[in-house]
Amino acid sequence: MTLTLFQGTMEQALIYSLVAVGLFISFRILNIADLTVDGGFTLGCATSAVATLAGHPFLGLLLALFAGALAGLVTAVLQTKLKVQPILAGIITMTALYSINLMIMQNRANLPLLKCDTIYTWAAGWLPANLCKLLLLALIVALVLLGVFIFLRSGLGLSVRATGDNPDLVRSSSINPSHTITIGLCVANALVALSGALLAQYQLFSEITTGTGMVVIGLASLIMGEAIVGRGGLIRCLLGTLVGSAVYRLIIAIAITSSLQPSNLKLISAIIVAVSISWPAIREKLAVHKLKKAAMQAAREEDSHA
């Protein structure tokens, strides 16, 4: 792998790590499989692209954050106030977002941003030209991670974390769990949309299908990160999202440079997620099998002695 390719891979890893952080909040902390992500990622892309076309790349990032939080809010209201099952609530929002994203992109499936000013061209003005994207992204991701870290340790963040852990406790400490779920989903989807917004300006286009399968990709990164870094404290978990995202992007880069078809990547992601989530169950089955085998072996030996 060349250095340029490696650098590009790390840039993408930084961008996509925000999806993993978002899923860390919804999937790990709130214990909700939030499918809003697929639509929310494209929403971020679309919002950012339209704003960039209009000459406001930074406003694009802010708008994407806001739009993502709004998408999270819709999902949260569906599941907390209107009692729609959490998975279905996400699917409903995701489906609606497909049309909304098209609307934002002025009914075009693809919106190119050629020759537009982006946050990266702005960074090239004051950062070393060959490293400007990497440094800018590192700065943004570091700021976001710091913000999430502070948030999750604050009083409000503690209640959000307790919601996924023990909703009874949240209720009994006089906090409405509906509110904490709503806040958590808003933050998670704002981060996902920000990730999409950074990507649109990075790849210089926004496409309606960009977000498809993003939940699985994000989960794959999250879970691989946990496998490598471990699931200890908050800092470890947040670093894990970065590491997992980097590993995932490296796998993809290697797959693309080898003979593997890029279209197989989603299959690979799906397998990674399916295996890693079912790993505890598989391990248990294997352990039981081993135990049985040992017991049978022991019984046979006893028989032969007798």
Binding site: G155, L158, S159, A162, D165, N166, S173
Partner: peptide, 21 residues
């Protein structure tokens, strides 16, 4: 006894949850 505490949070975080509130 499992109902009144959050298992994946530390002792101080559990206490803080009710205290900071």
């Amino acid at each position: 006894p499992l109902r009144g505490t959050a298992p994946n949070m530390t002792i101080e975080e559990n206490l803080a949850l009710v205290y900071l509130r």
